[in-house]
Amino acid sequence: MESKLANGLKLLYIPKKTKISSGLGDRLPEAYKKFYKEWRHKVPEPVYFKAKPGKWTKDEKTGAVIPVQNIPIPLKYPKTMHSGIWGGEAVVQGFKQSGKYKSRVPHFWTPTLKKSVVYSEILNKYMSTTVTERALDVINKNYGLDHYLLKTAACDLRTTLSLKIKRQILMALRDKTLYADDKVKQQEVYDKYKHYLENYTHEEIEWYGLTFDQALLKMQDIDELNEKKEPLKAKYRLELIEELKNSNLTVEENKSWLNKLNPFN
């Protein structure tokens, strides 16, 4: 009985509408949808709080066993973050309260930004960007920018700039366009990073790291290429010629008596 009820409830469940499941976004390829889910729907690693380990805890006062639920602190993602590498940091909006009977005061916890340079070994490029202290820390911990970007999921990178760099790195690895003039160095660097390519197919890399709007534009371009647009004029002309060829009709002469009259005789 209960199982049947549960089945019935399943039928009632309608998945929530998202950008990639409704409208134009629904037509995007699976490869992009996979990336989009990794970027926007996956829950990022905790940055501003320490997650409690384990499944159950005991209440300190009563000793009652209660499940552990790590509810993440909601983060705000400002537009300016997309021009830098923030390493998972964002803005926290909340309140401060100095005492139990004091009124709570609104407060924003924002990261400290600084201008610095990052270096990518695969692209062999120095890039001047805005970074946070945590971003540099994580780059150091992962032994370099390339390892950090390739290891980390899109939801933790978050910013479009870091995703763009990751996309270029992946494309360079896939097409082997790195160090085009130095074959020995190319092979050395490629061997170092090639194990990251196992996680992606050729098409997934093609669609990786694009924003939603960029993906739509890309899809539009592909559609235009596929359907060759020819003017209808040409089509109709061909049709008419075909029709005329097939028809056995000869043009009948006008047998009216007026034709016999020649005024210039």
């Binding site: 940055v47 501003y48 709080f49 320490k50 639920q69 509810i71 602190i73 940091e89 926290v92 909340g94 309260q97 916890w109 924002t110 990261p111 400290t112 946070t132 202290e133 945590r134």
Partner: peptide, 12 residues
């Protein structure tokens, strides 16, 4: 002000 670890005063 840099990266900080926060905690909710009132648990959810």
């Amino acid at each position: 002000r840099t990266l900080i670890i926060l905690k909710r005063r009132h648990p959810v």
